[in-house]
Design a protein around this nucleic acid. Structure first.
Lengths: 277, 277
DNA sequence: ACCTCTTTTTGAACGTGTTCAAGATGGGAT
DNA sequence: ATCCCATCTTGAACACGTTCAAAAAGAGGT
């Protein structure tokens, strides 16, 4: 049983090595770096595991010792790009306070950061679309990349001037919703075949004001019931799937909070007082 | 150059065989049927091309003569399921006139029809998620399965009693939008790990009234600007990607907020008074 | 019958991702 | 030093999707 799972290794052995052997970590990094370089040079499909191993000066079996499979090498890309994006977006947003503008900048920043990888993004995407894969952006909450992205969107909101006036329940959900919006943009981007993904850029420019408008309008009385419904639905059906909230599998089970309340049998803890008809 | 593309073969040779050789079509069908049977029995990954060929009593090369690759065998499944769904949904909707109910039935019918394939839907989905693949539901408009599904949703609308009162522009888009909604349900379903995909079923039950509410509310004055924006955006950015509308590359144009004329530089015929029956 | 050309069929061979039994390495404990 | 054990490394071997040159089977025409 090799110690592939470092978090487990770090948590289990109390008397064990506090920092995992730097030697092995070095090999791991070497393989990952080599893989990423070759991916960028030749594309994902054209880069064989044998080539990666050879280029890194290790055996092919060794690569599999550190990475469960070829697709796991992609994670490095994903993580790196997400970090770059967060940094770049923060920098570009600095000083701006208009929500629509900030959102637009954040999304455009993503398109820019992702641009170098667009060519083999398809392969990438294909792997991420597999629910069984650990790479799926929806699967494991632990995915650090998602946390980074959600955090960025929280900052997009916090830095803008529509602060306390909007529905607190919606406000709580918004960072995740904006991340979801980013996922839609990603989907659009992956399928975008125009030069420099101009189409996606235009899409983003149109989306941002629209989203801002929705958020702004959500304050008004007329929209409240609709917003309520949407918020409830997202809380019950979307967030749990992403791994948010303690209730991670409430579908057939009972409600996690409010034992025998009005929504017994309902998927999530809806709202305490929901005037349902 | 073998005649893999039967539509071309049928259209080109004026003096050629009006019906393509039934012999070869028989082999093709045999391979497809065998593949579908094995996929259902063992799952997609576990079913090897060698096994399909052996079970069908042909050589492996022969399978590749009729199908460009393994993934192309999936298309058979996709098409069949879509047809089944359309039939089943129509039957179940018969007599109902409430839009929300009809939509709910149509979606639930899909979940039921897709249930037998849920196990290997992941692999399926993974393939469909590849923009390069001919299987992608977004790629080629010609995809007959999508046409069937969109047509079904048109019937969902036509059979319901909210007919002429809703915004005609929205009405025109709705079938495609509902299909898009189905795609979201599919996404949800693929990732759903609950027993009998109970969670997806609950999701659908909640979505349908919500969608109906939106459609209903879209009539009121307050919502008009929002609906307008949404309709425009969808027409400009979503439908062209699906292959709808002649204007398929409007992205790089100018700012959308009407500088010169009402629709100057707009890709589609955006705002126009359509009085549809 | 014989030749000619297209359509269909074959199966060995290639390149790939992945596995695995076996070996090498290194650091403590005796 | 010697042994022990976990960690790391190896490369041959496996199974799979896919390709391809060549053979077989038809389909006309003479």
């Amino acid at each position: 049983m090799p110690a592939k799972d470092e978090s487990a290794a770090a948590a289990s052995g109390a008397a064990g090595p506090r920092t995992k052997a730097p030697k092995s970590e070095q090999t791991r990094a070497l393989i990952l770096e080599t893989a990423m370089r070759l991916f960028q040079e030749r594309g994902y499909d054209k880069t064989t595991m044998r080539a990666i191993a050879a280029e890194a000066g290790v055996s092919v079996g060794n690569a599999y010792y550190y990475f469960e499979g070829k697709e796991f090498l992609i994670q490095g890309f994903y993580d790196r790009m997400t970090r770059e994006h967060a940094l770049d977006a923060r920098e570009r947003m600095a000083g701006r306070t208009d929500f629509s503008e900030r959102l637009s900048i954040a999304l455009e920043s993503w398109v820019d950061c992702a641009a170098p990888y667009h060519e083999f993004a398809a392969q990438f995407f294909r792997t991420a679309a597999d629910p069984n894969s650990a790479l799926s952006p929806f699967s494991n909450e632990s995915h650090p990349a998602r946390a980074t992205a959600v955090q960025l969107f929280r900052e997009v909101l916090d830095g803008s001037d529509l602060g306390p006036k909007i529905d607190p329940e919606l406000d709580e959900l918004l960072p995740d919703l904006l991340w979801l919006h980013l996922m839609v943009v990603v989907l659009y981007w992956v399928f975008d075949r125009t030069d420099d993904t101009e189409r996606t850029r235009a899409f983003v420019q149109r989306c941002a004001p629209f989203v801002a408008k929705i958020v702004t309008l959500s304050r008004y009385r007329v929209f409240r019931p609709l917003v309520r419904d949407a918020v409830d639905m997202i809380r019950d059906f979307v967030l749990p799937t992403i791994g948010k909230t303690a209730a991670s599998r409430p579908a057939t089970a009972r409600t996690p909070s409010a034992p025998a309340g009005p929504d017994a049998g309902k998927p999530g803890k809806t709202t305490r007082r929901l005037r349902r008809g």
